[in-house]
Nucleic acid binder design. Structure first.
Length: 301
DNA sequence: TGCATTTGACCCAC
DNA sequence: GTGGGTCAAATGCA
């Protein structure tokens, strides 16, 4: 996988733009950007806020996340309205992701919203894709309880997960790990997710990439009493405190451990592939050294 | 000692 | 019968 050039000064983590995640066949270019932005949001949220926790700018950054979400909501609403004036394509459920069975469940209505994006944003800035991709994720959640994305940092999504199983999947090199919300027992939150390393992500040319599929929505409140299931924006606002409290979405299974800074092998391998920013993305969030590193690498940029 | 992870077994849909 | 998801006892770790 190759990295694409950075735009707007935004870091360019290893978001797969040449893999078929959340990609409708005839909307592939735009969907690639959506998936790319999706991973960017996930990684950015998990990286920036914890890194700035002790920084006076953290509140501002959190507000900026909120503002981005607000803007994206408005932009998407207008695009949806624009799209409704056109013909909706009913065959948009041809989604090509590793886990075809699940991803096909994603509503075609959601997918078809890309029409407006595809036709109108060919030359728009990455910011637009960035904003739209956030909303795309939210819309998918509203349309279906299954959301799939690709990311090199499958654990850093601002949630707290507990692993409850691991299974070898047919025709897959790597096992699939099963996680459920940490607050399942005490709060009855039924959110789950599966994490599986992609088969072609272990070569020298392919940094580790994972397919993460989320099921259900969070109905829990975290330790701060914030409803973590309400909205993505709320996650952004609180992810700082979440991640600092040593999230249980740790890299503990055999393959996921490779995303940890403790694994020098991965670091050595990824150094040739990732930007310094990406290096920080692989670090456990509860490591002071990582926070320092992230601040040094990213915060000062 | 308590909590999280591991892993084989079990259940269920196809 | 097979494959995927979940359960729960065993194990590891701080």
């Amino acid at each position: 996988m190759k990295h694409h050039g950075s735009s707007m000064g935004l870091p360019q983590p290893s978001v797969s733009s040449d893999r078929p995640s959340l990609v409708c066949d005839h909307h592939r270019p735009a969907m690639k950007e959506v998936a790319r932005g999706q991973s960017l949001v996930t990684q950015l949220r998990a990286i920036v806020l914890p890194a700035l926790q002790a920084d006076e700018r953290s509140e501002i950054v959190a507000q900026m996340f909120q503002s981005i979400l607000d803007c994206s909501s408005k932009a998407m609403a207008e695009l949806q309205q624009l799209h409704r004036s056109r013909n909706a394509r009913p065959d948009d459920d041809d989604v090509l992701v590793d886990d075809k069975k699940r991803v096909r469940r994603i509503s075609s209505d959601c997918c078809s919203k890309e029409e407006g994006v595809n036709t109108g944003t060919a030359n728009q800035s990455s910011l637009i894709f960035f904003l739209l991709s956030i909303n795309e994720n939210l819309n998918r959640r509203l349309c279906d309880d299954s959301v799939s994305l690709e990311t090199p940092v499958p654990h850093y999504d601002g949630r707290q997960w507990r692993k409850y199983g691991q299974k070898h999947i047919n025709n897959a090199k790597h096992p699939r790990s099963y996680y459920r919300c940490t607050y399942r027992q005490e709060q009855g939150c039924k959110a789950t997710k599966t994490v599986q390393q992609q088969d072609d992500s272990s070569g020298a040319d392919h940094p580790l990439m994972y397919t993460v599929v989320y099921h259900g929505q969070h109905t829990c409140k975290d330790n701060d009493g914030v409803n973590s299931g309400a909205d993505e924006s709320e996650i952004n606002a609180r992810s700082s405190s979440d991640t600092q409290s040593s999230i249980s979405s740790t890299c503990t299974d055999t393959y996921d451990q490779q995303t940890s800074l403790h694994d020098n092998k991965l670091i050595d391998k990824s150094e040739d592939v990732y930007e310094p920013f990406d290096m920080a993305a692989f670090a456990p969030l509860d490591l002071d050294s990582w926070e320092l590193d992230a601040l040094l690498r990213f915060g000062s940029a």
